[in-house]
Amino acid sequence: MATGTDQVVGLGLVALSLIIFTYYTAWVILLPFIDSQHVIHKYFLPRAYAIAIPLAAGHLLLLFVGIFITYVMLKNQNDTKKTQ
């Protein structure tokens, strides 16, 4: 069965994704229709960041995946050399 930690981590991931989705939807979809003098604009970064942040996050993710794959492959190569 899923233990307590699993449930906490899983529900935390669900909550995180819901928070990100709600905030991003409000930022990108709803904000242009709200008057630009409204107080709510204080709680959001300028609009260019709505693209820049996901782009940077995606690049970081790809970078880390690449580093991980390189590390694992190099390690495997060394291991097979040792056994031969």
């Binding site: 981590v9 899983g10 529900l11 991931l13 669900v14 994704s17 989705f21 990108v28 709505a50």
Partner: peptide, 24 residues
């Protein structure tokens, strides 16, 4: 970008939900 972020959120939520409710 919005569609991409939504897809990412959906994927993250699915993984989280399955982690929380997996069973033997």
């Amino acid at each position: 970008a919005y569609l991409l972020v939504s897809a990412g959120c959906y994927a993250l939520g699915t993984v989280g939900y399955r982690v929380a409710t997996f069973h033997d």
